[in-house]
Design a protein around this nucleic acid. Structure first.
Length: 864
RNA sequence: GCCGGGAUGGCGGAACUGGUAGACGCGCCGGACUCAAAAUCCGGUUCUGGCAACAGAGUGUGGGUUCGAUUCCCUCUCCCGGCACCA
């Protein structure tokens, strides 16, 4: 073998071997239990970034590990190819999104191949291919028929200058990102998927997802947001009946019906009918309603904005006392949640308290919390005011515990027909219509005579014309007559094709099913999906913890209810990897724009960051995700060219556990490269000494210790890779073993045998992480078979036995000494040895020993 | 604002079920090799005191439970992810 490690040569050799044998093509009839290993597919933005490298390396390590453990592994890859960035690139460069996207895919595919991932490229899909998205359309029509999809109006951001709908991220401080024009809200017809019908099931099934991180399950549960409460109807007072043209009720939903007697006002959303009716007669109110409607609908904005309100002058009546309650319009009440109206109980709700204090609305205490001995709620607000307790001043419902009061009040309301207990979810239905070009067309035709008509199955897919270039002023589809103009499938008269496209979350909600049968042109899924699904291990960024994963769980169930799959949950186990960060440095010249500088161009002088080029200081802006705008990205391509794919993979896996954020470090890359070179040299030195045919029959203490370490390390790496997914500690253990193996005196036959065994174990167990170099080293070590076809080794129990163990001796929990005792020594022996330990005795002194705690094979704690 | 997560040497991190804090790597310091440098190899490296043995302090803040807490409970601070049209 070569004395020098040459990554380019090694990686070409290994990849040529795998490619020539189609080593990673997955077959349904191959032996072994199936293992479907899936990493979230990338958006083809142009170049791979480090987050991708990290994501796909994690998946690849698991896929290769499982393959060596006898599993029939499938690891596919594809492209989340529709979306906004392609339209932005088109506007900037005048290139059609289709061309831009396909070129990006070709380039990124080459990059992925260079990293040596064990991917079955035969199953590759791109969501922008008609062969894929036709099934979006096909399923959408079935959902429409079954009532899972439906049409209603929804609110969008409207840029009045560009005459176009903007995404939330294109709205900056309430203005269009390109035009700077104040954004208006518009209500337009859209299609929705009835995910709320599945809320209960999606919530309940979280308990069974024990292969998912607890935090993701918690986030999903909170997102679904089930609350059990009470619907309460407040009858209109005469003024409100008059304004709305007849009697009626104002409905609210509350989880705190026990505070009903503390309600001193009502608050409704700006779009609520009562608000609109009042605004019609009051210009000031109309202006306020208008202002609210212009404001952001983003939850974060709504929650942090100043709470504002105006009285409508109208009233409703308390359902029990009949007392009139003023109705306010408030900007913190959303039409989309609950009934679009809330009852204001300032004494027991922090938000209502703030609102009432500002507007001089009375505060009436009706619950005494068990802990707080207050008689009356008064400023400042304390959390105890909002806690449940015993009701007071609540008529016939006084003196009850909150829970009992809720029950009693709900029953009384129900008897009067003014309310009932009800379950409410925070989750909203999923609006999938996008007024954009680069997405999957919604397969509907609008006919003046027949209304909304589905495109017949035989006409699917509705193909997206690929030559268009968006210019930022509306959806180019709508301006393309050959797309829009069509015949009504029902009556044959001229009709208009729907020009909205689908949310890209639709594309990603079922791609994992399509990998199982990507070549099937006749059906969306077939029996092979039954074989491969569910995904055994899904790997992706934590930023997808809620939306993508929840939509996929819903979509899978929808397909189940349409009889296409028998699956409930698509992803059995989930690993959410952390982001890849790098330092951010910038300069901010007077009156100029910030200029960012790459961390590689910055060094520390006397603890202060300066630009190497001119030695003048730069500002350190902490750590952030690698991005073009912050100028702190590192190109995986350069990394692979300079150090090789194995170093890139090793660095990613070693530097942090997968779920944590990972900090980029050029020195860390060097360290990873150095380790591979050290491993190469160790194998080279070993094999250049000739055969290693000694046996393990009568080893000396030093060789016995190395052999024990070899098998302890094997056991640890197996556990770290297979169960804990802590690749960093697995690598650390392999490094320790290499350090020990290169230190042992291995010139004699037995020494050579134990060193050889250690090297075999290191090469085998690191092969999922650094597959290229280990592929070549395995051959150098004299093995004839290919490493990828080897079985994962098992530790030899005999090698793990110890004669002696070292115990820590503590006095009152403080470390005072160490003792060595025979393995399996009795507690009495251990106790006596500990009490005899010299340093420990100094600390025991004359004091009587009160207790001795013995933790087997670990420590003895003497309590005095 | 709400929901979720995090904070350990100079740095990334380890300590898995309450039991030796700092594995492994980086950086730094010293040495070997070299005409020299790079590379490589060997040794040291939490802080304070001490020649040393050893002692004291120490896991973001303040408190609690325990023989024993980085780990469990409460409080606060700061950082990160998500908040429904970025993907």
């Amino acid at each position: 073998m070569d004395e020098r490690y040459d990554p380019a040569r090694v990686e070409r050799a290994a990849q040529d071997y795998w490619n020539s044998r189609q080593a990673f093509a997955a077959r349904e009839d191959a032996p072994g239990e199936k293992y479907y290993c899936l990493s979230m597919f990338p958006y083809p933005s142009g170049r791979l970034h480090m987050g991708h490298v990290r994501n796909y390396t994690i998946g690849d390590v698991l896929a290769r590990f499982m393959r060596m453990n006898g599993r029939n592994v499938m690891q596919p890859m594809g492209w989340d190819a529709f979306g906004l960035p392609a339209e932005n690139a088109a506007m900037a460069n005048g290139v059609p999104p289709a061309k831009w996207t396909r070129e990006n895919i070709a380039y990124m595919k080459r990059q992925l191949r260079s990293l040596g991932f064990a991917i079955d490229w035969n199953r590759e899909i791109a969501t922008c291919d008609p062969a894929y998205y036709r099934w979006n359309q096909w399923l959408f029509l079935r959902m429409l028929k079954k009532g899972i999809a439906y049409r209603r109006t929804g609110v969008v951001n409207w840029d009045p200058v560009d005459q176009t709908v903007l995404a939330n991220e294109q709205v900056i401080d309430g203005r269009g990102w390109r035009t700077g024009a104040p954004i208006e809200k518009r209500e337009i017809p859209m299609y929705y998927l009835n995910i709320t019908a599945y809320a209960e099931e999606l919530l309940g099934a979280l308990d069974g997802l024990d292969g998912w991180p607890e935090r993701v399950r918690a986030m999903q549960a909170n997102w679904i947001g089930k609350s059990t409460g009470c619907e309460i109807a407040f009858p209109y007072a005469d003024d409100t009946s008059a304004a709305l043209g007849g009697p009626g009720v104002l409905k609210v939903f509350t989880t705190r019906a026990d505070t009903l007697f503390g309600a001193t006002f009502m608050a409704v959303a700006a779009e609520h009918p009562v608000a609109l009716a009042a605004a019609a007669r009051d210009p000031k109110l109309a202006a306020f309603v208008d202002e609210c409607r212009r404001g952001s609908t983003m939850e974060a904005d709504v929650a942090t904005q100043q709470k504002k309100g105006l009285p409508t002058g109208l009233h409703v009546r308390h359902p029990f006392t009949g007392a009139p309650l003023p109705v306010w319009v408030a900007n913190y009440v959303l039409l989309g949640y609950g009934e679009g109206a809330v009852m204001g109980v300032p004494a027991h709700d922090a938000r209502d308290f703030e609102f009432a204090s500002r507007h001089d609305i009375p505060i009436v205490t009706v619950v005494k919390s068990k802990s707080g001995a207050y008689a009356r709620v008064a400023a400042p607000w304390i959390d105890a005011y909002g806690e449940p307790g015993i009701t007071v001043d609540s008529g016939e419902f006084s003196g009850l515990e909150s829970a009992a009061a809720v029950d009693a009040i709900a029953a009384a309301l129900e008897a009067r027909g003014l309310g009932a207990k009800r379950v409410q979810y925070r989750l909203r239905d999923w609006g999938i219509s996008r007024q954009r070009y680069w997405g999957c067309p919604i397969p509907l035709i609008h006919c003046e005579a027949c209304g909304e008509v589905p495109v017949p199955d035989e006409d699917l897919p509705v193909r997206l014309p690929e030559h268009l270039v968006p210019d930022g002023s509306g959806n180019p589809l709508a301006k393309t007559p050959e797309f829009v103009n069509c015949k009504c499938p029902k009556c044959g008269r001229p009709a208009r094709r729907e020009t909205d496209t689908m949310d890209t979350f639709v594309d990603s909600s079922w791609y994992f099913l399509r990998y199982a049968c990507a070549d099937n042109e006749r059906a969306m899924v077939d029996a092979r999906a039954g074989y491969w699904l569910p995904v055994d291990q899904y790997i992706g960024g934590i930023e997808h913890a809620i939306l993508h994963l929840l939509y996929s769980r819903f979509w899978t169930r929808a397909m189940r209810d349409l009889g296409l799959v028998t699956l409930d949950e698509p992803f059995a186990r989930l690993l959410t990897q952390g982001m890849v960060l790098n330092h951010i440095y910038y300069r901010h010249p007077e009156g100029g724009r910030r200029t960012y500088h790459h961390p590689a161009d910055v060094e520390l002088r006397d603890g202060r960051p300066v630009l190497i080029a001119d030695g003048a200081p730069v500002v350190h802006d902490g750590l952030g995700t690698m991005s073009k705008s912050k100028g702190n990205g590192v190109d995986p391509q350069k990394l692979v060219e300079e150090f090789g794919a194995d170093t890139a993979r090793l660095f990613m896996m070693f530097t942090a556990p997968p779920e944590q954020t990972l900090e980029w470090s050029d020195e860390g890359v060097q360290g990873a490269f150095r380790f591979i070179r050290r491993l190469w040299k160790a194998v080279h030195d070993h094999v250049s000494q000739g055969a290693a045919d000694g046996d393990f029959a009568a080893l000396g203490a030093e060789h016995k210790a190395l052999r024990r370490l070899t098998h302890e390390t094997l056991a640890k790496i197996t556990d770290d890779l297979g169960r804990r997914h802590t690749f960093n500690t697995a690598i650390a253990a392999a490094m320790e073993l290499l350090n020990a193996a290169t230190r042992v005196s291995g010139a004699d036959a037995q020494g050579r045998a134990v060193v050889r065994e250690a090297l075999d174990v290191i090469v085998l167990t690191l092969s999922p992480i650094i597959p290229h170099v280990t592929h070549v080293l395995w051959q150098s070590l004299g093995h004839t078979g290919a490493l990828i076809d080897e079985r994962w080794p098992k530790p030899d129990p005999a090698a793990l036995l110890r004669d002696e163990v070292e115990l820590v001796v503590q006095v009152n929990g403080r470390l005072r000494g160490r003792i060595r005792v025979a393995a399996g020594a009795s507690e009495e022996t251990v106790r006596a040895a500990a009490l005899a330990e010299e340093n420990a005795r100094k600390f025991i002194g004359e004091a009587p020993v009160r207790k001795v705690i013995i933790v087997r094979d670990k420590l003895v704690n003497i309590v005095v």
